[in-house]
C-alpha cells in the first residue's frame, strides 16, 4: 500500500477518515475537547483551523528549499502564528460574539500539534498543491470530528442544535455535557464507535485476503 503512487484526491480524502486527525491520529485534543460544547463553536473552530492548515501548508511547502533544517521549527511556528493572528483579526471583524465564544482558543491554534505536525511531516516534503490539499483534507476531517462531538454535546447539554431548540419544553439538559468532562465523554464515545468500525473493516479485509489466497 505504501509504495503505490498517491493520487491528489487521495491526499485530500485520507484526512477525512483513514488518517482523521481527531479520531485516528488523536491530535489537537485541546481545541477538540474545549471548544466543542456547541455545534456552531465546533464549526467555527474547525473553519479557523482549516484556514491556518491550508495557508501554513502552502507557505511551508513554498519555502521548503529556503528553510534550513536547523531552523525549521522556529520558521514553522512563526508562519503558523502569523496566520493565527490573521484569523483572530478576521473573526473579530466578522463577529464579536463569535470571538467571545471561541475566546482564548483561537490563539491556541498556534500550539495545535496537528498544524505543526502536518507542516513537518507533509508540507516540508511535498509540492505546494499537494500540501494545500493535504491541509484542506486534514482541516475538513478535523472540522467533521469537532462537529460530531459538538452535536452530541449541544443536543444533550443544551437541548438545541445550532441554537435551534430540538425538544419540547421541559427537556432536562445534561449539564455535564457542556462542562469540560462532557468533552471527554463525547470524545470517548466517538472513539469507541470509530475503533469498532475500523476493527470490523480490518477483519473484513483480512478475511477477503484469506479467501483470495
Amino acid at each position: 500500500m505504501a509504495l503505490k503512487p498517491v493520487s491528489p484526491t487521495d491526499e485530500f480524502v485520507k484526512g477525512l477518515w483513514r488518517d482523521n486527525p481527531v479520531f485516528i491520529q488523536v491530535l489537537g485534543m485541546c481545541p477538540a475537547l474545549a471548544v466543542s460544547n456547541t455545534a456552531i463553536n465546533a464549526l467555527a473552530m474547525g473553519a479557523a483551523t482549516t484556514f491556518v492548515l491550508v495557508m501554513a501548508g502552502l507557505s511551508v511547502s513554498l519555502l521548503r528549499k529556503f528553510i534550513p533544517k536547523e531552523a525549521r521549527i522556529v520558521s514553522y511556528i512563526c508562519i503558523i502564528a502569523t496566520f493565527v493572528t490573521c484569523v483572530d483579526y478576521i473573526i473579530m471583524a466578522l463577529s464579536i460574539e463569535l470571538h467571545r465564544a471561541l475566546g482564548a482558543f483561537i490563539a491556541l491554534i498556534v500550539v495545535n500539534c496537528l498544524i505543526l505536525g502536518r507542516s513537518e511531516a507533509f508540507a516540508s516534503k511535498n509540492k505546494p498543491g499537494r500540501a494545500m490539499l493535504d491541509g484542506l483534507g486534514m482541516g475538513v476531517g478535523f472540522t467533521f470530528a469537532l462537529l460530531f462531538i459538538g452535536i452530541v454535546r449541544e443536543v444533550l447539554g443544551s437541548g438545541t442544535l445550532f441554537g435551534v431548540s430540538m425538544f419540547p419544553d421541559g427537556f432536562q439538559t445534561w449539564t455535564i455535557m457542556v462542562l469540560p468532562s462532557g468533552g471527554f465523554l463525547a470524545m470517548a464515545g466517538w472513539l469507541l464507535i470509530v475503533n469498532w468500525l475500523r476493527q470490523k473493516e480490518d477483519d473484513a479485509a483480512r478475511r477477503a485476503a484469506e479467501a483470495e489466497s
Binding site: L63, F66, I67, V74, S75, C78, I79, T82, Y89
Partner: peptide, 18 residues
C-alpha cells in the same frame, strides 16, 4: 536569510491584515 526573511514576511502579513 531564512529567519529574517520569514520574520519580515510574517510582519508584513500581520500588519496588512490588522
Amino acid at each position: 536569510r531564512a529567519i529574517v526573511g520569514i520574520g519580515a514576511f510574517c510582519a508584513i502579513l500581520i500588519v496588512g491584515v490588522y
